[in-house]
Design a protein around this nucleic acid. Structure first.
Lengths: 219, 219
DNA sequence: TAGTGTGAATGGATTCACAGCC
DNA sequence: GGCTGTGAATCCATTCACACTA
């Protein structure tokens, strides 16, 4: 297993497959074919098979894929078969909403601390957060990252603050950033960034509405 | 102008160009070359030119692109040179955070109403929302959509509610949905969907951290 | 029969390279 | 010199089609 080249779009799709598989399992389904799975998420059966083939042979001819088994394999591929500790920076409205978002925990992510440099916010409790210290100042970052072996961070600060915050997170040792600030972060090689610009998403939607459209736009 | 085939990835990039151009204008820059713009957002100069070429010839040889002019053109392309009315369904934490998110207004979107079917929430005010009625029941949807000529909707409800809500929005006449529920919505042709699954984004980040990585992940 | 895994063929998107322009 | 716009060439992703398996 392990693989050289995984098409980037395949990564997006794989995580959609996983989500769908979890839903299918909930509904009691034991087995799926590439066609069923593909139809559920809007891709061709061949595409499903090719995507999975990047990582091994998980199916049985004439039967399809065992749902539980495939979920297990996909979690292993994504690394979400173990818990990842995460920190979040920026306790504004969006940041707080994300901090309390249950979906992250469901995927096995654990938020260990929330940071902000606004003195008015420091110490304020974050519902659902284990860290009793509540919102922490950025100065605490390196210690927390080291103590709790944190590798991922969520950036929810205003645009002008995003790059310095990213630099601080990387200096503290993080390996991946989920960025909600509307700027392109620049990071050294070896650090991954996934950016989600909410306004931009709406803008793109707008585009698809104006000029004809491809039924579905991917997650 | 108008164009047959715009590569889908180009749409994503164009909106990143626009964002960057707005930042450059703020900094007083009058003119940019495709190379400068490309470097700022992490793509090649040729890519920038090809993307723009889908919609016309906006540059001047030997000079580059006039920033203000290109911003104007891109807004026209996306349709964000006029205001779009938007409704949001699902007044949970994430929904409320999005309802109050300033970034949408900055791009010219106007939130005209927030809906939820939890009786405990109906009537509750939404900070910053013009609609004095506060959170409204879904029954009000068709009237609001018709009166205010709403074409876009944001879906922030739990997964099981998402498809029925989407159906209701489409029945009311919406043409595009920005979906934050972790399910693949199925919609009739002519309706656009852009899905943002936050947990999935973190999962993908996780993937890039585990298996080598492409410095940047797109918005 | 139903369905996987995969080379080969196709189709799109990206990059190259250069003619033309300021 | 610097830079755009664009065909041609390359690269990559998707689809096709079929051998193979349970």
């Amino acid at each position: 297993m392990g693989k050289e080249s995984v098409p980037e779009p395949a990564v997006r799709r794989l995580s959609v497959y996983l989500r769908e598989l979890e839903a299918l399992e909930e509904r009691g389904l034991r087995t799926v074919s590439s066609r069923q799975l593909g139809q559920a998420v809007g891709v061709s059966d061949a595409q499903v098979r090719k995507d999975l083939a990047c990582f091994g042979q998980f199916g049985q001819s004439g039967v399809g894929y065992r749902v539980a088994e495939l979920i297990h394999q996909l979690r292993r591929i994504f690394g979400t078969d173990r818990t990842w500790n995460v920190v979040l920076v920026g306790a504004g409205r969006l940041g707080m909403a994300l901090a309390e978002y249950r979906g992250f925990a469901k995927k096995g992510f654990r938020l260990v601390a929330v940071f902000d440099n606004d003195p008015a916010k420091i110490g304020r409790p974050v519902p659902g957060l284990e860290d009793a210290a509540g919102i922490r100042p950025m100065d605490d970052l390196p210690a927390i990252v080291a103590q709790q072996d944190v590798r991922l961070g969520v950036v929810c600060v205003p645009a002008p603050a995003a790059q310095p915050v990213a630099d601080a997170l990387i200096a503290a040792g993080l390996r991946g950033l989920l960025n909600f600030a509307p700027v392109a972060l620049s990071v050294p090689p070896g650090v991954a960034v996934v950016s989600v610009d909410l306004a931009t998403q709406l803008e793109q939607l707008c585009f698809y509405v104006r000029w004809g459209v491809a039924g579905h736009g991917r997650s």
